[in-house]
């Protein structure tokens, strides 16, 4: 057997590819579902926290800042293990996918809050004054004048951050969420061949490369240059 044949046999064995692609596909579905859920709840929560912060209620702001800083500093895998293995001890049992979804949503919310908040604070004072002078309330101004601008400003930095965080769905394998990587590693253990692992890696790449490319496009389209 030549080295090349051996390489193919190890990483791209056709029989195994045929046999295991339904499993990998199942993993893809789970990954996509969790990723989509994380994007929706994470961004919504982030936007909500940033809006609440705009009201400058001291006690709430303190809570938001602590929440944001903790989830920016804490590795997501630590939080996942802590919640997944810790909560059952106090009689709260969450399914593993729920733990993954919660933790990644919190992480995304923390970053999104920072980005939206930066957008809110960088909206010129004149915008507030103009809106208030037409009789809009604080909340109306925030909702219909300031937030739309803040969201637009936040799109490029958020895109890449969101991609990076949704890729963390692969961490679910550690607590047994049946996403792509988990399907791939169990098939690998079962077959004693690296082909399923390679399929898993390829599945991730096929799934995320278009998103990365779109992110690159958004970044250049919305790019603002510093002198």
């Amino acid at each position: 057997m030549t080295a090349w044949e051996r390489f193919l046999e190890t990483f791209f064995k056709p029989e195994l590819m045929v046999q295991y692609w339904p499993d990998i596909l199942e993993g893809v579905v789970v990954t996509v579902q969790i990723a989509a859920a994380v994007v929706v709840t994470g961004l919504a929560l982030g936007l909500m926290l940033a809006s609440v912060r705009a009201y400058q209620v001291r006690f709430l702001n303190l809570f938001i800042v602590i929440f944001v800083d903790v989830f920016r500093a804490l590795p997501p895998l630590v939080a996942i293990l802590l919640i997944y293995f810790g909560l059952p001890n106090i009689d709260i049992v969450l399914p593993s996918f729920a733990v993954l979804w919660l933790v990644l949503s919190f992480v995304l919310a923390a970053f999104a809050e920072e980005i939206f908040w930066a957008g809110i604070t960088s909206t010129p004072k004149g915008q507030w004054e103009a809106a208030r002078s037409t009789g809009l309330t604080f909340s109306q101004t925030l909702l219909s004048v300031v937030l739309p601008q803040a969201i637009r400003l936040g799109i490029p930095p958020l895109t890449n951050r969101t991609i990076a965080i949704t890729k963390n769905t692969a961490l679910g394998t550690v607590i047994g969420v049946s996403e792509i990587l988990s399907q791939a590693t169990s098939a690998q253990a079962f077959t004693g061949n690296a082909t399923p692992l390679m399929m898993g890696a390829l599945a991730y790449i096929i799934l995320f490369i278009p998103i990365v490319a779109v992110g690159r496009w958004i970044e250049t389209r919305f790019a603002w240059r510093r002198a």
């Binding site: 051996r6 390489f7 190890t10 990483f11 991609i163 890729k167 963390n168 769905t169 692969a170 961490l171 394998t173 792509i180 990587l181 590693t185 690998q188 004693g192 061949n193 690296a194 692992l197 390679m198 898993g200 890696a201 991730y204 790449i205 799934l207 995320f208 490369i209 998103i211 990365v212 490319a213 690159r216």
Partner: peptide, 24 residues
């Protein structure tokens, strides 16, 4: 660069750590 930004780091790590031994 886009390839490595698309692959989750854990997937890369496991591919290198558990996959390569099969290739010796």
């Amino acid at each position: 660069v886009d390839l490595f930004r698309a692959a989750p780091p854990l997937v890369l790590l496991i591919l290198l750590y558990s996959g390569l031994p099969f290739a010796g």
